[in-house]
């Protein structure tokens, strides 16, 4: 691999720009595919380019399904993100766990006594209102959102934006009773049952979690199940 190609891949990843490195396994010659262009010494015909773009869109590394020389495609796509609304005790456990699992974590809480650098060293922290923060962060299909405040003013503001986004996971902390009240408020705010069915609430999978770290583990397990196995709300019981 040319050092310049490696540098480009690292830069693309940092800029959240999807890229794919295609290697001819016979010659070792490589090409770099983006959504809007192709570079490098390896010439790709239309069929190879189309197969490469399809694999990149599906975030799927592997051998391209073509006859001729074996071409391997390495998809280099942006990391998933996790937005936590509520700089609470559970968030202090969930943020570092999610970072270990590869998520870029942002913590949102306008309450300055909670949102302190001392409580969340090394994480992006904002004291914007949740609806403003989420609108700015623009959740995409690689984003998970979890509300943890128990305060309808904060959680509902976040959920309003989350439900209008393509976020792959939306979870809300709270008991069944709290969640039922939340669904009622959001219904009155105009959200359909189908939209509200996207919310995992009560949040997390059933592992008998008690401590903040255990609840964080339960939530991260559920996010993983949705991301990797396509679980839907209600398929697991709450923690």
């Amino acid at each position: 691999m040319k050092a310049a190609l490696l540098g480009q891949l690292v830069a693309d990843r940092a800029a959240r720009r999807p890229a794919a490195l295609v290697t001819d396994l016979e010659s070792g010659i490589q090409a770099l595919i983006h959504e809007d262009g192709v570079a490098g010494a390896l010439a790709l015909d239309d069929a190879a380019l189309a197969a490469g773009r399809a694999a990149l869109a599906a975030d799927r590394s592997g051998l391209l399904p073509l006859s001729g020389p074996r071409l391997f495609l390495q998809a280099v796509v942006p990391s998933p993100r996790l937005i936590l609304v509520g700089a609470v005790h559970i968030a202090q456990a969930l943020a570092p766990m999610a970072a270990l699992a590869g998520y870029g974590v942002t913590v949102v809480d306008p309450r300055r006594s909670f949102a302190t650098d001392a409580r969340f060293p090394a994480f992006e922290l904002t004291t914007e209102w949740p609806d403003e923060a989420l609108a700015r962060l623009a959740p995409d299909a690689r984003t998970a959102i979890v509300t943890l405040t128990h305060d309808p003013k904060l959680d509902d503001a976040a959920l309003g934006i989350a439900l209008n986004s393509p976020a792959f996971y939306i979870g809300s902390l709270g008991s069944r009773k709290t969640h039922a009240a939340r669904l009622k408020r959001l219904t009155e705010a105009g959200f359909s049952d189908a939209a509200l069915a996207r919310i995992h609430g009560p949040v997390g999978i059933a592992i008998g979690a008690l401590s903040p770290a255990e609840i964080a583990l339960s939530v991260l397990a559920q996010i993983t199940a949705v991301r990797r196995a396509g679980s839907k709300p209600g398929e697991e019981r709450a923690a």
Binding site: L6, G7, V10, Q74, A75, S79, P80, A101
Partner: peptide, 24 residues
């Protein structure tokens, strides 16, 4: 590919930047 894979490429680039030979 997840973030741990990104660390691999970043580390490879950092080693190159220090003038070391690197293989992936």
């Amino acid at each position: 590919m997840d973030a741990s894979e990104q660390d691999v490429l970043q580390q490879a680039l950092a080693w190159r930047g220090e003038g070391r030979k690197v293989a992936i």
